[in-house]
Design a binder for these strands. Structure first.
Lengths: 109, 109
DNA sequence: TCCTTATTTCAACATCTTTTGAGATATTGA
DNA sequence: TCAATATCTCAAAAGATGTTGAAATAAGGA
């Protein structure tokens, strides 16, 4: 992940609705969720959800596939890993020290 | 780190100048750097740098102290760790799998 | 006290982002 | 083909953020 991709990822995650969408899709797992189901979970209008889903997809944090009439969105786990690695390596330089315990626990959870 | 703090941190890091300031201050270490020195390194006007430094300080990612005529800014490492932990635990749920190797390496570097 | 250096504050402006609602497109089944 | 469902696109309005340059504040030294 380079600086530009990281800036895009941070911008995506700095918006409440989008951060919640990412968390929802991470929990939903690889099967993902239809755009409409995401909208219902957020209580947001279809155009609003579509705007935020596009934003997240453009940033590479989620991906989509069509399935019948629905468009199914799912998390792109490597993008999230990449962002974490960017923060740890390029940004924190190993100085920010999230305890190795926490780190392993989170990694293996 | 709660959702609101994370949103603030992501917003702070989604701006090029601010992301670079954080990286600069992380490298600078606990002694930090004067606002003017940060401005020189960025090639930015004093009011611009002041605006972004305030933004980062408000978000808790950096802190300041006065030293004679200068105001010295330095990274708040626990805030960066907190953000990494937020991403790994609350957001990724252990599914984004930054390889444990990478993870340990980064953590111990 | 006055001057210099370091930094912040402020208001005006420009730019970017988000929301809204209406209409367009795509898919399926009758 | 028509109707229904699911989603996207678009333009306008609203809101938030970033930039600029000038003026204000704070500290130290002559």
């Amino acid at each position: 992940m380079n600086e530009l991709q990281a800036l895009d990822a941070f911008a995506s995650l700095s918006q409440e609705t989008r951060l919640r969408i990412v968390r929802l899709l991470v929990i939903a797992g690889p099967d993902g969720m239809a755009a409409g189901a995401v909208g219902d979970a957020m209580g947001a209008s279809s155009s609003k959800i579509s705007f935020h889903l596009s934003h997240l997809e453009r940033a590479g944090l989620i991906q989509s596939r069509r399935e019948a009439r629905s468009i199914i969105y799912s998390a792109v786990y490597p993008a999230l890993s990449g962002l974490i690695e960017f923060l740890m390596k390029d940004c924190c330089q190993g100085r920010c020290d999230p305890s190795v315990d926490t780190c392993s626990t989170a990694c293996e959870a």
